[in-house]
Design a protein around this nucleic acid. Structure first.
Length: 776
DNA sequence: TTCGCACACTTTTTT
DNA sequence: AGTGTGCGAA
């Protein structure tokens, strides 16, 4: 058993304790994934049929990675029978085969958050409830809370405390909305994310034979990131494990960062109460990071009251101090990070994939993308708007969803008039009202248009349009029985008029939308190929749709080459990953910790755990940065440094732009450094940056007949002459894009104004000192 | 019914 | 800044 070699003592115990409940408290970087992998391998080596093993993870990525690693140890064929996946995908699969028990079609649609929100908006509207007082998003998150705590509509109405609570919060209609929302989803044959867990619970509690079946099947259960399970997930795991009690949970309470979506940290804190015989193993040695990083992270997380006592330590080198950079603006911060990466890449031959830029919110990405692009540094943004959430992609997907599940009226009304075919709002409303009144799905009305037409109060022209539309959908459905999903989707894209509609828009955005559709088709082909290759693969359209609903893949649209790239992601997404160099950016009050989470101690502690997660991603070096002002909500906002900065003992920190004092860092570590302390305003002209190769699609539409009016030169404020801007130069501006300098005015080098005509933005007067123009 | 424009709101994190 | 919503005109 080679794979047991090289494990430390607690790791070995965690891997080899196969029977009975086991809790592994795995500190950051302590080899958690390795332990999980080896444990599964060890189970299989000890003749447990992989068929009886269930491993639950939080992300598809984690599941995929673990499966691959297990396969390396025990071989492909053994690994294949494992059930390994996210809670949502595993239970979606179970629900599909057992759907009839709870009155759902087995091809039920899965609503993503966007779909749920749309449905909720309609529900509120239909109930004639004031949409200002009942914000769809808020209502939805409230209902999500209820669902995750197994409070059904009925339970809600039977619970005086909840009723009173909502009444006092001036939300007395929540119950009615909740009811209507659930009804709508049910009628549509759809489940939202929370339903996948709630309905699984329903299935397991109401039907003992189903429970028994899966209890017997899943004799060994492993749960990764147990600290992030919510109550609903907790109950499922508990029910499934209650027969054999071979349950192994792995987690770290210090890394619980999902309470906003119902994660209940007490699930892990109380594991011992649920299973008094449980063996607990603590993995405390961090193999990932330098001592400085581990110690700094410990100090911060130590401020939290709510936690297990752990002693995470590192025996790696002490390492460098964490560098802190104070910047003037978000753009300045991004420029620092980019040049720092460039510098390390050149001077220490580090690869670009050794770097990560971690931030609190997705909206912070843009500045970094700009800065990295300017330096020609390859990068990849993770998360953000998923490819499958783009409008044009969702539109085509809506057609496909409708083919699989004609009751999905959310999909139906999304595309019934797209591209416009004269079926407007009032017609749609009539359809809805009529279907509601007769208590049948809208698809039924469309199926029997001839019969219902006289009662629909629609003119013949509209009836014809409806009939045509529905005939088209029907034809697609017939086709789906004979052809594969790809062929059908292609036909849908063409015959629905979607592609034609998109092609009419010849702007760059329009062209990229067509490309996105093409990419969707490609990913579909890829999916089908993949499914055909595996033994029990399912290349059906319905399986494809489930897959995209449960995966937030952002990368389908980019050319997926494997060249090293800098990673940009939110801290949440970075959990479980590690990088030699981490830039943790935007360390400002109200950004991190978020202004939404500074009011209660619990919220603040979660933000602190988030900080802990971020810092412990770093192997060798960590950089903190913050800006004193930031472009936000369309205007410049002042910012204070994050409280977390002051929570790190200064012995672990080093300020790297000492020209500016900071009240948080002592000045012992002032040294010359990569920045040679140039304050950032004066650096704009000084930097000779690698230029992007000639830009592909910028049309030359600057009028040639405009003559320069002045030949005044700008004297570079920093004394360097490499970037002097003259009349007639083509320049690039961060926001306005490419333009030509028409006119320069002023002799004081600090105050020269330039008139620039931009290709898209037209004429602007800019003060050179501030405008950050780059000559191109 | 469709289109275009003014406006309001946004940004916390994800399956 | 960017996107979604609602209203009024064609």
């Amino acid at each position: 058993m080679d794979y047991l070699k090289g494990l430390n003592e607690p790791q070995l115990e965690a891997v080899t304790t196969l029977e009975g409940p086991l809790m592994v408290l795995a500190g950051a970087g302590s080899g958690k994934t390795r332990v999980l992998t080896m444990r599964i391998a060890h189970l299989i080596t000890n003749l447990v049929d992989p068929f009886h093993i269930l491993a639950l993870t939080f992300t598809n990525k984690a599941a995929k990675e673990m499966k691959e690693r297990v396969a390396k140890v025990v071989g492909q064929s053994e690994a294949r029978n494992l059930w390994m996946g996210t809670f949502h995908s595993v239970f979606a699969r179970i629900l599909r085969s057992e759907a009839h028990y709870i009155g759902f079609p087995s091809n039920f649609t899965i609503y993503d958050s966007q779909d749920s929100l749309n449905v909720m908006k309609k529900v509120i509207k239909e109930l004639n409830i004031d949409a200002d007082q009942y914000k769809a998003k808020k209502v939805l998150s409230r209902i999500s809370q209820y669902k995750n705590n197994l409070i059904t509509v009925k339970a809600y109405f039977n619970n005086p405390e909840l009723l009173e609570n909502d009444e006092r919060a001036n939300q007395k209609h929540i119950g009615a909305i909740y009811q209507k929302y659930v009804e709508t989803c049910f009628k549509n044959g759809a489940m939202d994310f929370d339903d996948l867990l709630l309905r699984t619970n329903e299935l397991l509690t109401r039907f003992p034979e189903v429970l028994a079946k899966y209890q017997d099947r899943f004799r060994y259960i492993l749960v990764d990131e147990y600290q992030d399970t919510n109550h609903s997930q907790y109950l499922i795991v508990k029910a499934l494990a209650s027969k054999f009690e071979n349950i192994c949970v792995v987690g770290d309470d210090a890394q619980s960062i999902y309470s906003f979506r119902g994660a209940n940290i007490y699930n892990i804190l109380n594991f011992k109460k649920d299973y008094p015989d449980a063996v607990t193993v603590a993995l405390e040695q961090n193999y990932r990071s330098t001592q400085n990083i581990v110690n700094a992270a410990n100090v911060v997380i130590g401020k939290n009251l709510q936690q297990f006592k752990k002693n995470v330590f590192s025996e790696n080198e002490v390492g460098e101090k964490i560098k802190v950079y104070r910047s003037l603006s978000d753009a300045d911060e991004a420029a620092f990070v980019a040049s720092n990466i460039w510098q390390l890449h050149n001077s220490e031959q580090m690869n670009f994939d050794d770097f990560a830029i971690l931030y609190r919110t997705n909206s912070q990405t843009r500045a970094f993308e700009d800065a990295l692009r300017k330096k020609n540094i390859p990068y990849r943004v993770y998360g953000g708007l998923s490819f499958y959430q783009r409008k044009e992609v969702k539109d085509l997907v809506a057609y496909l969803r409708l083919l699989v599940n004609p009751n999905d009226s959310e999909a139906l009304f999304r595309i019934i008039n797209l591209p416009t075919r004269g079926i407007g709002d009032s017609t749609q409303n009539k359809l809805i009202v009529f279907a509601d009144a007769h208590n049948i799905p809208v698809s039924e009305v469309l199926n029997n248009l001839g019969q219902f037409a006289p009662n629909l109060q629609l003119n013949n022209g509209i009836i014809t349009k409806l009939a045509d539309f529905w005939a088209m959908i029907k034809a697609f459905q017939v086709m789906l029985k004979e052809e594969n999903a790809y062929t059908v989707a292609m036909e849908v894209a063409k015959r629905s008029g979607l592609i034609k509609n998109l092609k009419e828009d010849q702007t760059p955005e329009g062209i990229s939308r067509v490309e996105n559709i093409q990419e969707l088709m490609n990913s579909m082909q890829g999916f089908i190929d993949e499914q055909i290759q595996v033994e029990d693969g399912d290349p059906s359209l319905s399986n494809f749709l489930e897959n995209i609903a449960l995966s937030a893949d952002t990368q389908k649209d980019k050319k997926d080459d494997d060249s090293p790239k800098v990673s940009l992601m939110t801290i949440h997404l970075s959990k479980g990953l590690e990088f030699p160099v981490v830039h943790l950016v935007g360390l400002e009050e109200n950004l991190f910790p978020s202004f939404m989470s500074s009011s209660t101690r619990e919220e603040l502690e979660e933000e602190r755990r988030l900080f802990y997660v971020a810092l412990t991603r770093a192997e060798k070096r960590a950089y903190f940065s913050y800006a004193i002002s930031r472009f936000q909500w369309g205007k410049i906002t002042d910012a204070e440094p994050s409280r977390f900065l002051s929570e790190v003992d200064s012995e672990y920190l080093e300020l790297i732009n000492p020209a500016i004092e900071s009240r948080f860092v002592n000045h012992s570590g002032l040294k010359s450094n990569i920045f040679d302390e140039a304050p950032s305003e004066t650096r704009f002209f000084k930097k000779k940056e690698p230029k992007k190769s000639l830009n592909r699609d910028e049309p030359q539409i600057i009028p040639k007949n405009l003559k320069p009016v002045s030949t005044a030169k700008i004297i570079n404020p920093s004394g360097s002459s490499s970037q002097d801007i003259e009349v007639g130069d083509r320049v690039r501006h961060d926001r306005f894009g490419v333009g030509e300098v028409q006119f320069l005015d002023g002799t004081d080098p600090q105050n020269i104004k330039a008139k620039v005509i931009f290709q898209h933005e037209g004429e602007k007067n800019l003060i050179l000192k501030f405008a950050k123009l780059t000559k191109i």
